[in-house]
Design a protein around this nucleic acid. Structure first.
Lengths: 357, 357
DNA sequence: GCGGTGATTTGTAACGTTTTAAATTGTGCG
DNA sequence: CGCACAATTTAAAACGTTACAAATCACCGC
């Protein structure tokens, strides 16, 4: 064993910029740089005594490994990239999900980088860039399409990733998804249970997988009930609130308008209320809405909206955990895929001290 | 000049993982690695002809420099870090600002990383971590306090940063801020112009600089008008919507309630409307609100709310640009600080095709 | 033709880490 | 005592880039 009391070997110098390196620890302990490296990595071939001593010194001088050097040597970046689409600006989708991912990454060596992909919708380029330049060890993105080209690309490259949303591709891949079928099914059933005769659906843009799930859930509910229904095409959850409002208003002017709305989002619900209100119709009286809720917002507005909750932060946390597992080498698809149940609790803004008016 | 036709020098090998490096280009062109490096850096000592040839080859084979190696060698990370507080989840504050920053970083070598700081509010630790470990070349954060310790720390360390919001520290530093004084002043004047007798203020948490600016603007307006006023303490823009709603409702039960509200945020405005509505009061009839608008949300709801706009994406873009300038070495405080005027346009949800009802 | 000059190009070392292979130590046993 | 063997520790090389100093080249005036 090296004698800790012997002077630092000649040729060893303190790093110029003060930041401690492996070399610093080596000089202090009298060990070789290699030994220190392995000790910190808890290699079994290093004596337990040495491992402890090295760890202690590292802690004392506040050592933390240089990420650039590690990355250069190992090829691992210790970075998770997340792709955010421009539309996700509203109502904190992006921030909620990222908060969840960050939570999953807490305590690991991984950092979260946001790909500057707000501008161009063609984010297949961003995916290509990440794979080819090895910008990250794993990728997270959302708004999957049934035949999502990003998923294909990543799968073929063997690049670890997790999607928010499923695809219909033959090769299965890691994902976290919310059960939008059940959401739409339950939401529409609630409308019917409230006595509504003709539910209408406002779903996501048709190209996304989840829009199909919502449609399916909606159709299942209306068919079961054998009631009339309507699907509002030409607007979707990404439409500007003003466009949705106008569309609702126009529809009410035509014969046989819907009296219930299954809304996939909060802004959409607000816009619907506004449009109906413009026509002199009151929520809960002439019509009803059941909406998906992803923020505390709808919980406190007037009139109260019946909602079904989706926890985006939880979703992000699951995605982070699954991605770490995948990067760790897991191929057990069972622990890499997760379908979250809509929570059944009725979020209607009722808080303690609330009085019925 | 090196002869392009001569065979690749012995000892040169193709990189194992296919990714082209400087060495690859050197082999192809018959130049030395150093020459290629400088050619790509457009160093004047390399002949124009060589520079062009190297660039072309680099383009052809799809070369892009290894960030880890650059970072290791130069100490520069080419990373901008952004700190997001937990409260910024709502209404896309974070995402909007980041979209703006990303826009400013577009086309530069910089990547945007989000510090996983959602969990602990003590983000002074995160700042320390970034400085000490050289995690980024620059930092962006928001919600400054008058004597913000983060600003102190960064200034002393000489670490480039830009804040969203001002401080009252003696040493001036780069910032982008919205003129919240003018916002509150104008908003309150509008309330008074609408004939309101007793405006009330809901501002940000008192610890933040901008809350003081809002208060100042509000007070200036009410003093000028010589009218009654009220400041709603015990709630602020960060309060849950339900808490704000309840507080408004309770206040209306007491004597001499306010009949106008200057709201610093959208959720706050919605909650206020809800609380008043619970008391049977109608916006625009018994009371008015002027709110700050940072998303398209309020534009489409019913009842219409009078708002003053703050463009967060633009703010982010300015912050990004200023930070790049600062990293580039600028110390001209004139081009590192920016106070944005509230836009005077009235965003009241009026879109093309809108009809007055 | 020769030293000098400016314009280009080049080799070597280094950034801090991990990996591979080799060296050093200690121990048991014939 | 000497050898094999395991347990530790070590030296050297490499990842891809840039900085520094040195080398090469072409060309000029004498």
């Amino acid at each position: 064993m090296a004698d800790p009391s012997k002077p630092a070997r000649p040729g060893s110098a303190a790093p110029r910029h003060g930041k401690p390196t492996l070399r610093t620890i080596a000089d202090i302990t009298g060990l070789a740089v290699t030994t220190v490296s392995r000790a910190l990595a808890d290699a079994p071939q290093i004596s337990v005594d040495t491992r402890h001593r090295v760890r202690q010194v590292a802690l004392d001088i506040g050592y933390s490994p240089d990420r650039a050097a590690q990355r250069l040597k190992t090829g691992r970046t210790n970075v998770i990239a997340v792709l955010l689409a421009p539309h996700e600006e509203i109502l904190g989708y992006g921030t909620s999900v990222m908060a969840g991912i960050a939570k999953a990454l807490q305590g690991t060596a991984y950092h979260l980088i946001v790909m500057p992909n707000f501008l161009d919708a063609a984010n297949i380029d961003a995916v290509n860039y990440i794979i080819r330049n090895g910008m990250a060890d794993g990728l997270i993105f959302s708004r999957t399409e049934p035949l999502d080209p990003r998923v294909k690309l990543l799968s073929e490259a063997g690049f670890p990733f997790v999607t928010h949303g499923r695809t219909e591709l033959a090769t299965s891949h890691p994902f976290v998804d919310y059960d939008n079928f059940t959401f739409a099914y339950e939401a529409t059933r609630r409308l019917i249970a409230k006595g509504r005769q003709k539910p209408a659906l406002i779903s996501g843009p048709a190209s996304f997988t989840f829009a199909g799930h919502i449609l399916h859930g909606f159709m299942t509910a209306v068919r079961e009930a054998g009631c009339a229904y309507e699907i509002l095409t030409d607007i979707d959850l990404d439409s500007p609130a003003g466009a949705i409002r106008d569309r609702i208003r126009r529809r009410q002017a035509d014969p046989d308008p819907p009296d219930g709305f299954t809304c996939g989002g909060e802004v959409c619900a607000l816009a619907t209320i506004t449009g109906m209100s413009d026509c002199g119709l009151t929520l809960g009286v002439e019509y009803d809405i059941v909406a998906k809720q992803t923020s505390p917002l709808l919980g406190a507005i007037q009139p109260r909206v019946d909602t079904i909750y989706e926890d985006l932060t939880e979703t992000g946390e699951h995605m982070g955990r699954i991605l770490l597992r995948r990067i760790g080498g897991s191929t057990d698809i069972g622990e890499l895929q997760l379908l979250l149940d809509p929570e059944r609790r009725f979020k209607t803004g009722v808080t303690a001290g609330d009085r019925t008016v």
